[in-house]
Amino acid sequence: MNLPNKLTIARMILIVPIIILFSIFTWYVITFENGEFKNVNLQTPSQYFLYTIGIIFIISMITDFLDGHFARKNNQITVFGKLFDPLADKITITITLIFLSYFQYTYIYIVIFMIIRDLIVDGSRNIFAKNNLKIEASIYGKLKTIFQSVAIPIILFLIPIVDSNVWWQLLMINIPMIIALFLSIYSGYQYFKQVIPFLKG
């Protein structure tokens, strides 16, 4: 197994501690902090769970960059990588977003629209594949992933510092995520626009 595939597997493994830490964080806040997720601050130990998740998430996104870099550089693009590389990214990002929306650290509608967009894009790619068409990844889709990868650590590291009960502070730390939302919708529209003729057929 080549290095890019090993990095992909490592990223998939990192999903496990993210889920475990989010679960422990949930239990801790409910048990010891009266379930006040929006009152996590620098005076509570629960902040360290968020910081640790943020660090693991950053490491995961670094492996994403490295496996793509080495795969292209060393011409080690494989069927395994094509399948599991984007899958590992989507699972990591989606699970993290679901937890963040549950704690009200980001907006639920952002998560819903992003999940719907991914379903539309995946469905479109399946239709393209059945028609023997190769559609290159949109630059807006790549930018969406970049903004998501930046937005999530920003939220995890800043939520213990800001007062998330104050709407404008919550909005400020979610600006990169909102940008990712618009990029997500636009790139999803581009895919769907190309698949419409096949749906009519």
Rank of each mutant, 00 (worst) to 15 (best):
M1G: 06
I159C: 11
N131P: 14
A137R: 04
I93R: 03
F25W: 09
F32S: 08
A10I: 07
W167E: 12
V121D: 03
V40G: 01
F37R: 04
L21H: 04
P176K: 06
I91Q: 00
K193L: 13
M177G: 04
L119H: 07
M114I: 14
F147K: 02
I127G: 08
V166E: 11
L87I: 13
K38G: 09
N74R: 08
F80E: 01
S164A: 14
S60P: 11
K134C: 13
S149W: 01
G54R: 03
I62T: 09
Y51A: 09
I19V: 15
L3K: 07
L119N: 13
I196Y: 02
F113T: 12
I59V: 14
K6P: 05
K142H: 11
I173N: 01
P45F: 12
F128M: 10
I139V: 11
T31K: 10
G81W: 08
I24N: 00
K134N: 14
E33T: 01
K6M: 09
S187A: 12
L170N: 06
K38T: 15
F22G: 03
P160R: 04
G201V: 14
G81S: 10
N2D: 04
T63V: 07
M172H: 00
G141H: 01
I185T: 10
T94C: 12
I59K: 06
K142N: 12
P160F: 04
L119Y: 14
D85F: 07
N39P: 06
L158Q: 08
V79N: 03
V16G: 01
L83D: 04
F99W: 09
S184D: 10
K142I: 09
G54D: 00
V111M: 06
T96R: 00
M172S: 14
N39S: 14
P86M: 01
F157T: 05
Y109Q: 06
N174M: 10
F192H: 05
L87K: 04
I62C: 03
Y140D: 09
E36R: 13
R11I: 03
V166M: 06
R72V: 11
L3Q: 02
F128C: 13
N126I: 12
L3F: 09
I108T: 15
W168K: 06
P176A: 09
N131V: 13
F147A: 10
I24R: 03
Q169G: 08
R72A: 01
I115V: 15
M172F: 15
I110Q: 02
Y186F: 12
A137P: 12
Q43M: 11
N34Q: 08
N74H: 10
S187Y: 00
T63C: 02
I18R: 02
I58V: 12
G54T: 11
T52D: 04
S101E: 06
L14N: 01
Q169D: 04
K73L: 14
S124D: 05
F57H: 05
L171D: 07
S60Y: 01
L3I: 14
L21N: 05
Q47T: 10
G123F: 11
F198E: 13
L42I: 13
